[in-house]
Simulated assay, not measured.
Amino acid sequence: MAVRIRLARFGAKKKPFYRVVVAESFFPRDGRFLDVVGTYDPRDKEKGLNLNLESIHQWVNRGAELTDTVRRIVKKAETSVRAEQ
């Protein structure tokens, strides 16, 4: 059983909003999940990214895999945290 960190889509038609969730790979996209580790709103460029990076790193250390999209979002969040410091 592979645990993955991926996006679950919410929001209205043509107005997507995503939760970054930890789920087993065989669970449906918007179905059951183990943990919510953040949110992502692609329409809000400034405040649309809210991730708990510490929790994400804990899950990765336990063996969770990041999807390509989540990997790109996490990298973006980490660079913005470094720029603030």
Results as ranks from 00 to 15, higher is better:
F26W: 12
E46L: 13
V37Y: 02
L53N: 08
R62P: 07
L34D: 06
L66Y: 07
K75T: 09
R4V: 13
E46W: 07
G48N: 12
E84L: 15
K47V: 06
S80P: 05
V60H: 01
R9W: 02
G11Y: 08
R71L: 08
I56Q: 01
E65I: 09
T39P: 06
R32C: 03
Q58T: 12
I56M: 03
R62I: 04
E24Y: 12
D30G: 03
D68L: 13
K45Q: 13
G11N: 08
T69L: 11
T79V: 12
K75S: 10
R6A: 02
V70S: 02
I73V: 08
P42H: 06
G48M: 09
R29I: 11
N50I: 05
G11S: 12
S25Y: 15
V60A: 07
E78G: 01
L51N: 00
F33Y: 15
R62A: 11
G38I: 00
I56D: 02
R62V: 03
W59F: 07
R62H: 14
I73K: 01
V60E: 13
F10Y: 11
I73S: 06
V74F: 06
S55E: 14
A64W: 04
A83I: 07
A12S: 15
N52C: 06
E24V: 11
N52F: 00
D44I: 07
T39W: 06
K76P: 00
K15D: 09
V81D: 09
D44M: 09
R29H: 10
Q58C: 09
T67F: 02
A2G: 11
A2R: 15
I56S: 00
A23G: 03
L53R: 07
L51R: 01
E46A: 13
S55C: 10
R71H: 10
Q58K: 14
D44K: 12
V3P: 00
A23Q: 01
N61E: 15
P42W: 09
D35L: 08
G38R: 01
I73Q: 03
D41E: 07
I73A: 08
Q85I: 11
W59Q: 02
F26P: 01
L53M: 04
D30N: 12
N52L: 03
V37C: 09
L53D: 01
V22D: 02
Q58D: 14
V36R: 12
T79I: 12
A83W: 03
R29A: 14
S25I: 10
H57D: 13
K14N: 15
K47I: 00
W59E: 02
E84C: 10
R32K: 15
Q58N: 14
A12H: 15
P28C: 05
P28Y: 05
V60C: 11
D68A: 15
F17E: 04
Y18W: 09
K13C: 10
L53G: 03
I56W: 05
K76Y: 09
V21W: 06
L53P: 07
S25G: 07
R43E: 14
L51P: 00
V70P: 00
A2Y: 13
G38D: 05
R32H: 11
K76V: 00
A83Y: 04
F27I: 06
A2I: 12
F10P: 06
A12K: 15
K15V: 10
K13S: 13
R6I: 04
A64H: 06
D44P: 09
G63I: 01
